[in-house]
């Protein structure tokens, strides 16, 4: 009986996110907690699973930015209810890594960055969000302060993308082991490589999988004592 209820509520959380239905997500999240189910499971198997489908719909040009933003709102509504119930040690165990994220100086577009941040947070990363129009030195400082594994930079326009090269150089100069992930409309794999970044993601769901790949590589290298 309880398993059926669980399944039903997970489906509600997921469908609520996909159909950008905040009320539906809230109701399911509250019921989830009332039933004493595991908050983390609700986040990952329900909310995040829904957002994954949203990512697919975006990639297939069925959803566009307004739809994705509304799905993100629904996800946040569920997260607000479920997160306080996540058991502390459990959340620690799930901690994937730390990320500094921001939009480079001169760029005031932060929609893409916010969606990537949401994906990271949902997946269990600790995210240090510097916001938009962030001066170069801020990225370097924040990475040093937090000792984050990843710095994720976003640019929406060609005119600001070119500033990324300097940020990558500066961060690597201070700490060559930091992994740098670039994203945003004008970027490509090729440019990311030319700028000296470790990863590139064309959209938010790819940003998450790329970050997970980068972190596991980092952990491997640390284990082997290579860095």
């Amino acid at each position: 009986m309880s398993e059926d209820k669980k399944k039903e509520l997970l489906e509600e959380l997921k469908e609520g996110v996909i159909n950008y239905d905040e009320e539906r997500v809230k109701k399911a999240a509250e019921e989830w907690i009332k039933n004493g189910f595991d908050a983390n499971e609700g986040i990952f198997e329900g909310l995040a699973a829904g957002m994954e489908v949203v990512g697919d719909l975006f990639e297939k040009n069925e959803y566009f930015v307004p739809e994705v933003l509304m799905c993100a709102d629904a996800l946040y509504a569920g997260l607000d209810i479920l997160r306080p119930h996540v058991k502390i040690d459990e959340s620690k165990e799930r901690l994937k890594g730390e990320v500094v994220i921001g939009t480079v100086e001169g760029d005031v577009h932060d929609i893409g960055k916010n969606i990537v941040k949401l994906m990271f947070e949902t997946a269990g990363f600790t995210v240090h969000d510097l916001g938009k129009d962030v001066p170069l030195e801020k990225f370097v400082e924040e990475q040093m302060r937090t000792d984050s594994d990843i710095v994720a930079l976003s640019a929406m326009m060609t005119t600001t993308m070119v500033g990324m090269k300097k940020v990558v150089e500066k961060i690597k100069e201070k700490n060559p082991n930091v992994l740098i992930l670039l994203g945003g409309a004008p970027l490509s794999e090729d440019i990311a490589k030319k700028y000296g970044a470790d990863g590139y993601a064309p959209d938010a769901s790819n940003a998450l999988s790329e970050a997970l790949r980068m972190v596991s590589t980092l952990r491997e290298m640390k284990k082997k004592g290579e860095i």
């Binding site: 001169g106 129009d133 326009m157 005119t159 600001t160 070119v162 500033g163 300097k166």
Partner: peptide, 16 residues
């Protein structure tokens, strides 16, 4: 408007 007058070595377009 932010003119980025403080930025010396970079070309930045004004933003709001």
């Amino acid at each position: 408007i932010n003119w980025y007058a403080h930025v010396e070595d970079n070309i930045l377009y004004p933003t709001i």
